[in-house]
Simulated assay, not measured.
Amino acid sequence: MTILQTITPVTHDLGQFKVRRALPAKERTMVGPFIFVDEFGPARLDAGQGMDVRPHPHVNLATVTWLFGGEHAGAIEHRDSLGTLATIRPGQVNLMTAGSGIVHSERSPQDERTGGPRLYGMQTWLALPDGREEIEPAFEARRDLPVVEADGAKATIIMGELWGSRSPVTTYAETINAQIALEAGGSIIIEANADERAIMLVGGDACLGDAALTLYELVVLAPGEEMILRSDSGGLAMLLGGEAFPTKRHVWWNFVSSDPDRIVQATDDWKAGRFAKVPGDSEEYIPIPDQPKTVSYP
C-alpha cells in the first residue's frame, strides 16, 4: 500500500487569497517533526493591498517558510523580536526557531504592494524534540540549497538529506523537506529512509505509482516503501517528513509543547505583555483569541 492516509486540508478564505491547512488535522497531528502545514495561494492581491500578519508569539517550535516561483512568485517581509529583518523570495528558506519564545510579523513588502502582491507558498511548523524545546531563539535564511536534477525532475533540498545531498539548514530532529518540480513525463524516486513522509501536490499533476494526486491534499506515504513520483504534463510537489516523535505534542493557537502547562504559561505571558517586542513593528499585535485556534490571521 503506497498511500497510508490522505488528508484534505481545511480551507480558510481570507478574501483575496486562500490558506489551506493540512496539519494539524483530526485524523493526524504530525508527520515526522512537522506539526503544522499551511499552503497559501496562488493569488494576486489588489494594487495597494498586502498580507499583514501582525506580531504574534511562538514557543517550542520552529517555522519554515518557503515561497514557490513562476508567474505567482512574490515576497514576504519577516521581522522578529531578535531584531531580524529579512525579505523572503523564491529559492530562499526562512527558518525561525522559537524555542523559549519569539515574536514575529509577516507582511507584504512595500515595493510589492504598488502593483498588487503575489502570494504562493508554504509555511510549516516543526515541533522541537524532547530536551530541546526551550533552546535559545534563532533565525536563519539560506539560499545555498542543493539541487538534484535527473529524469525530468528538479528537486531542491530544503532540509535534511535526500538523493545523496544534504541541505545546510539547521535541523533539530531528523527532518526531510524538498520542493520537487517535474517536467512533462518527469519522475523521481521517493526514498524510504525516513520514519514518516508525506507529499502535497501544489501545482500541475502528479502520480505516485498508479495513484493520481489531488491538488493540495496531503498524502501520507506508507513507511519503508520506495516509490516513484511522476507527472504526465508537469507538476510541483512538496515532500516533508522525518523521525517519528515518541512524545505527544500539544498545539493551541500559535504555541506547541510537550507540556500543556507550558502553553498556559505562554498564553499568560502574551496577555501580560511579557514577550519581547518586534523592532520596527511594535505598534500592532494579534491578541489571544476567545476560542482556541491553531493560528490567527488578520
Rank of each mutant, 00 (worst) to 15 (best):
R166G: 07
T156F: 00
S231F: 03
K154A: 12
E161A: 15
G224I: 08
G204K: 00
A155T: 11
L229N: 07
D144M: 03
T171N: 08
I190V: 15
A237C: 13
A141I: 10
A150S: 15
R249S: 10
H250G: 03
A173E: 10
A237W: 00
E161D: 13
A192Q: 13
M159S: 13
T175C: 08
T171D: 07
G242H: 00
S257G: 10
I190F: 00
I157S: 02
V251K: 11
T175K: 05
K248S: 13
T171R: 11
V256R: 02
L201T: 09
A150L: 12
M227L: 15
A153I: 05
V256Y: 03
R230L: 07
I188H: 05
A244K: 15
N177T: 09
W163H: 14
E161S: 15
E183W: 07
V169D: 00
R197H: 05
I228K: 14
T170W: 02
G241N: 04
A155R: 01
I176D: 00
R166C: 10
S257A: 12
G224T: 11
D144Y: 02
A141Q: 15
V220K: 01
G234M: 07
G164W: 04
A192V: 08
L213M: 13
G152E: 10
A206I: 03
K154N: 08
E191P: 04
M227V: 14
D210V: 09
L221D: 01
G241C: 03
N254H: 09
A184M: 11
P246C: 06
I176P: 00
S165T: 12
S257E: 06
V251R: 15
T175Q: 03
G160K: 05
I176W: 03
R142P: 01
P246E: 13
I188L: 12
G235R: 00
Q179V: 15
T156A: 06
L240Y: 08
L145T: 07
E243R: 14
R249L: 07
M159D: 03
E196K: 00
G209S: 05
E191F: 02
S257R: 08
N177R: 10
I190E: 00
V219L: 02
T247L: 10
P223Y: 00
R197E: 06
Y216D: 13
F139D: 08
